[in-house]
Amino acid sequence: MLQNESEYIRILKDRLGGTLPREELDDIVSDYSEHFRMGLANGRTDEELWRSLGSPDDVAREIKAMHLVKRAENMKSCGNIFHAVIATVGLGLFNLVFVLAPFLLLICMVLVVFIIGVMFAVFGPFAFAYSILQLAGLPVFAIWLNPVAGVFISIGITTTGLLLVIWDYYLARFFYRVGIKYLKWNIAVIAGTEDVS
């Protein structure tokens, strides 16, 4: 493979074409072609410039991750944050531990709280109905020792469940916001620094 400007640009365009808007891609490409042009004019060789710029694949990966994180910030959605995380994880093995693992952990937390909340919110009304039936003296086997207490407890359970679900929504939003900040910091400081020799 020839290590020159046109090959470098070709790889950049190839890796970023599907993700970045045309205008942004042209803007980035112009920087790199100008760098090659100026470097050659200053008596440096294509190979030397290629090496000092770093592999176009790495450059493209970093730019792509930056772009996807920005998109996830501007348009909040599960899909967008997922793509942003995957792109950042792809920047280095290191990030399997420092990005993917915490991400999965947070998702699990949000899910567990949600499931518990929903279970409470669903179970509560049933328990409530049951204690009413028991109060009315219908021939059902007693689950409540004291049906009056059962009324209040089941209201409590339902409310707790609903509150958990609402709270979980804010928790997820909080994680999202902090996560975006962390991804940005990660890309700015850590990404691409582990295999530079």
């Binding site: 803007d27 980035i28 920087d31 790199y32 100008e34 760098h35 100026m38 470097g39 000092s52 710029l53 770093g54 790495d58 450059v59 970093e62 730019i63 930056m66 700015a188 691409g192 530079v196």
Partner: peptide
């Protein structure tokens, strides 16, 4: 760009390629 990269790599030994994504 090239001038900026040259200016900085005079003082700090860093891969020139990292400056352009930062500028972006």
């Amino acid at each position: 760009g090239y001038e900026l990269v040259a200016e900085i790599s005079k003082k700090i030994d860093i891969s020139e390629g990292t400056i352009y994504p930062l500028l972006h």
